[in-house]
Simulated scan of single mutants.
Amino acid sequence: MSLDTRQLYESSTGDSWHLVRDNDSGEVFVRHLANKASGGSVRDVGLGVFLTLGRDGPEHQEVWRLISSLIPRAD
């Protein structure tokens, strides 16, 4: 499996969220890596599900910022 990743956000506690594309299937998802104190678990969430989970967290705000950057500004 070939993956491309881009870190979206890393919290002050060491949790991090990454936007991931599986180059074989074309699937795009968000990968949450918990910090070591929380067990270091990895959780993959489909992009659609992730977007419905909320807009308040900085990791969500970064995904929305990236999406909005795809639309050119009208000058």
Score class of each variant (00 low, 15 high):
residue 1 M to V: 10
residue 1 M to F: 04
residue 1 M to R: 05
residue 2 S to W: 03
residue 2 S to I: 10
residue 6 R to N: 05
residue 6 R to Q: 12
residue 7 Q to C: 03
residue 7 Q to V: 05
residue 8 L to R: 01
residue 8 L to N: 02
residue 8 L to C: 03
residue 9 Y to F: 14
residue 11 S to V: 00
residue 11 S to L: 00
residue 11 S to Q: 00
residue 12 S to N: 10
residue 12 S to I: 07
residue 12 S to A: 13
residue 12 S to D: 13
residue 13 T to Q: 11
residue 13 T to R: 10
residue 13 T to C: 09
residue 13 T to I: 03
residue 13 T to A: 11
residue 13 T to V: 07
residue 13 T to G: 11
residue 14 G to A: 08
residue 14 G to H: 06
residue 14 G to S: 05
residue 14 G to L: 07
residue 15 D to I: 04
residue 16 S to V: 02
residue 16 S to T: 04
residue 17 W to E: 00
residue 18 H to F: 09
residue 18 H to Q: 11
residue 19 L to S: 00
residue 19 L to T: 01
residue 19 L to N: 01
residue 19 L to D: 01
residue 21 R to N: 11
residue 21 R to S: 10
residue 21 R to H: 11
residue 22 D to P: 01
residue 24 D to F: 07
residue 24 D to W: 04
residue 25 S to N: 06
residue 25 S to A: 04
residue 25 S to P: 02
residue 25 S to D: 02
residue 26 G to Q: 09
residue 26 G to V: 03
residue 27 E to R: 12
residue 27 E to S: 10
residue 27 E to G: 03
residue 28 V to H: 11
residue 29 F to A: 04
residue 30 V to H: 00
residue 30 V to L: 02
residue 31 R to L: 09
residue 31 R to I: 04
residue 32 H to Y: 15
residue 33 L to G: 05
residue 34 A to K: 09
residue 34 A to P: 01
residue 34 A to S: 09
residue 34 A to Y: 07
residue 34 A to C: 03
residue 35 N to M: 04
residue 35 N to D: 08
residue 36 K to E: 15
residue 36 K to C: 12
residue 37 A to M: 13
residue 37 A to Y: 12
residue 38 S to I: 02
residue 38 S to R: 04
residue 40 G to A: 02
residue 40 G to R: 00
residue 41 S to Q: 13
residue 41 S to H: 13
residue 41 S to T: 13
residue 42 V to L: 12
residue 42 V to W: 08
residue 44 D to P: 12
residue 44 D to M: 03
residue 45 V to K: 10
residue 46 G to N: 12
residue 47 L to G: 09
residue 47 L to K: 05
residue 48 G to M: 09
residue 50 F to Q: 02
residue 50 F to M: 02
residue 50 F to E: 00
residue 50 F to H: 06
residue 50 F to I: 00
residue 51 L to H: 06
residue 51 L to C: 12
residue 51 L to V: 09
residue 52 T to Y: 05
residue 52 T to G: 06
residue 52 T to L: 08
residue 52 T to V: 11
residue 53 L to M: 15
residue 53 L to W: 09
residue 53 L to Y: 11
residue 54 G to A: 01
residue 54 G to N: 05
residue 55 R to K: 13
residue 56 D to R: 07
residue 57 G to W: 04
residue 57 G to I: 01
residue 58 P to D: 10
residue 58 P to F: 08
residue 58 P to E: 14
residue 58 P to Y: 15
residue 59 E to Y: 14
residue 60 H to L: 02
residue 61 Q to I: 02
residue 61 Q to F: 03
residue 61 Q to W: 03
residue 62 E to N: 05
residue 62 E to P: 01
residue 63 V to F: 01
residue 64 W to H: 10
residue 64 W to M: 13
residue 64 W to K: 02
residue 64 W to T: 06
residue 65 R to W: 13
residue 65 R to N: 08
residue 66 L to Y: 06
residue 67 I to V: 14
residue 67 I to M: 05
residue 69 S to P: 14
residue 70 L to C: 15
residue 70 L to W: 10
residue 70 L to H: 15
residue 71 I to Y: 14
residue 72 P to N: 09
residue 72 P to E: 11
residue 73 R to T: 14
residue 73 R to C: 07
residue 73 R to P: 10
residue 74 A to E: 11
residue 74 A to H: 11
residue 74 A to W: 11
residue 74 A to R: 00
